[in-house]
Write a protein that binds this DNA or RNA. Structure first.
Lengths: 147, 147
DNA sequence: TTGCAAATGCAAATCATTCGCATTTGAGTG
DNA sequence: CACTCAAATGCGAATGATTTGCATTTGCAA
């Protein structure tokens, strides 16, 4: 887990204001092992001493995403947008349809494919979205027991 | 373009009712070269002689997707769900961020990767989502002219 | 042709997200 | 440290896509 300090340094270097809420949001996402929805962030911060409003969370997410401190993700299962700390490490998600847990995998199997496509078609690729869906070991075991 | 008749045969074989609206929706999607939103389907069918309600479109899409006659797609750019005829041919989308046109590419660069991942981690993959985003030739040309 | 479950239309409801506006706050400046 | 002001926040209302309840209509099997 990247040190929170490094993230706060990056926050400062963006030039946007360094507010209590933004710091607490980054703190929460940094220690979270799963991408989180605006709602989950809101509920988590609300528990603590100082309160926050949901629209502030949404606005914070917008600006943190724009400044590359946070990534925005939309999964096929589930309706809400999720957010995770942007560690500037290219990765993809493996999502368990049983327990909805999200696993991260580093590396990318399609970079080469992108180049080929560019050469072949002239299309200029600037980004991609790749997610794998299925069942984690634990959910596979549970499934077997049911039968 | 697959013959509409084949699609209607598949519709019949599902056992769900063979209604005028559903047939016209399949017809529209079959001749469409782009995935379409519920709204676009609604507007298109409304023009023609008989009318339709938007909720009927949504309900039809649900059941057509459940019966594998139609695929549901959510693109990163844009907020609405899109639908396309399900031709049962594995493919992915290349989306132009300039003109929002969607191109289809057959074949899949990650099947082998999926197998590796399964072997390595024990995760059982049942599906994936892969889309490429960038700029088509035409939009690249236009971009140059602006500079 | 009849019966009935499934499909439809319409309006109201829902849910995530955004926006308007009055108030507060971070952070540079003197 | 006090001052200023744009940026950030809180609250509630608005939005936009999608869903739902319910009364009516329509496929289709018998």
């Amino acid at each position: 887990m990247e040190d929170l300090q490094d993230i706060l340094v990056r926050l400062k270097s963006t030039g946007i204001k360094n507010t209590k809420h933004r710091i607490r949001i980054l703190e929460f996402l940094n220690q979270s092992h799963q991408p989180r929805s605006a709602d989950e962030i809101y509920e988590s911060l609300r528990q603590e001493d100082s309160s926050i409003s949901l629209s502030t969370v949404y606005r914070a997410m917008d600006i943190l995403v724009a400044n590359e401190l946070v990534n925005k993700v939309n999964f096929e299962n589930g309706t809400k947008t999720s957010f995770e700390i942007n560690r500037h490490i290219h990765h993809h998600f493996v999502v368990c349809l049983g327990c909805n847990k999200v696993f991260s995998i580093e590396g990318c199997p399609i970079h080469e494919y992108e180049h080929e496509l560019e050469k072949k078609t002239g299309f200029k690729v600037v980004g991609h979205k790749l997610e794998l869906y299925g069942y984690c070991k634990a959910c596979q075991r549970q499934q077997k027991h049911k039968n």
